[in-house]
């Protein structure tokens, strides 16, 4: 086992874990906002995929990575608008609409990819920001502290979300919208508006996550490239009980298990790819079996709010 703990292995694992973990982190952070507000957003996978496709195209055609990220955010919010109008405004079934959005986004991005990106273009390497000093730490410094600017922005978002949940009125409103929407309504705050903002924020973060996956992670867009990441993010948000710092822990752990294949190859250990592929999902199931009873869900999660109904 000694060859497992070599420097190259650890570097590959941690760097890869960060690369795969950041999209998960963004999506899970978004999901925890909408779950807090009482909207179970099953369409997250679709938001990530469309964000990935549009983000990649934006970066490809404009030549600027930032345009790509902005486009990805826009695409995620575009999908979220459907969720907000149909589920929050009209009170339709969140699960049916969520599955519909995911299926439609899967099919649409695959069609667009097949019709437009026939040349299978790739983006060049992205510009990384290296933090002076910290990146000099031996072994892991280089791989951890030399990242794309979005990664640092993501960490900022985690802290912002934590602060939002913990010490702002908006955070309190979000929580009330998920736990006791009638109380929020009685307090004179619109449940529909609160939930709409939450869903749009989820779309933005999911879209950004998808764009990161395509632009920085893969450098290209492939149909179905999220491969269940949206659903894993939903589980992370559930298990983290919508606490941002636990979302970080969960996303990085799952990200690392996603990247184990590469790291094991670096250490020249041969494990069947199918075993590695199912590790993140297996990890989720094991965690659910062990801590299932502690998974927190808001009382009104998944229920549309109808004023005056009991």
């Amino acid at each position: 086992m000694s060859k497992v703990l070599t420097e190259t292995f650890l570097t590959a694992l941690v760097a890869g874990g960060l690369l795969a973990g950041v999209p998960l982190l963004l999506a899970a952070l978004g999901e925890s906002i909408s779950e807090r507000a009482g909207v179970l957003n099953i369409g997250l996978e679709g938001m990530m995929l469309l964000g990935g496709y549009v983000g990649f195209s934006g970066a490809l055609y404009s030549g600027f990575t930032w345009v790509g990220f902005a486009a990805g955010i826009g695409a995620g919010m575009f999908v979220a608008v459907f969720m907000a109008v149909l589920c929050v405004r009209l009170g339709l079934d969140q699960i049916v609409v969520g599955i519909a959005l995911t299926l439609a986004a899967e099919g649409l991005t695959s069609l667009l990819h097949g019709a437009i990106l026939t040349e299978r273009p790739r983006l060049g390497a992205v510009e990384l920001v290296t933090i002076p000093g910290l990146s000099g730490i031996p072994v892991l410094g280089r791989s951890v502290f030399s990242q794309h600017l979005v990664v640092y922005l993501t960490l900022g978002l985690v802290i912002f979300t934590w602060w939002l949940f913990r010490s702002t009125n908006a955070g309190l409103n979000l929580r009330a919208a998920g736990d006791k929407p009638s109380a929020l309504d009685a307090a004179g705050v619109s449940v529909v508006a609160t939930r709409t903002w939450a869903v749009l924020a989820t779309g933005a973060l999911g879209g950004l996550g998808g764009a990161y996956l395509a632009i920085v992670g893969a450098g290209t867009f492939e149909p179905f490239m999220t491969n269940g990441a949206g659903f894993i993010a939903i589980v992370i948000a559930m298990l983290a009980r919508a606490r941002p710092f636990w979302v970080v822990v969960g996303a990085l752990l799952i990200g690392m298990s996603l990247q184990l294949q590469t790291a094991l190859q670096v250490a020249s250990i041969d494990v069947p790819i199918d075993v590695v592929n199912m590790l993140p999902f297996l990890a989720v199931i094991v965690v659910l079996l062990l801590f299932g009873r502690r998974a927190y869900l808001p009382a009104a999660l998944g229920l549309p709010y109808v004023r005056g109904s009991r």
Binding site: A104, A105, P223
Partner: peptide
């Protein structure tokens, strides 16, 4: 000359 995923779009739209 398209990928055979049009069905997914159709099914998603039917659900919506």
């Amino acid at each position: 000359d398209l990928p055979n995923d049009f069905l997914l779009v159709l099914v998603g739209l039917i659900l919506l």
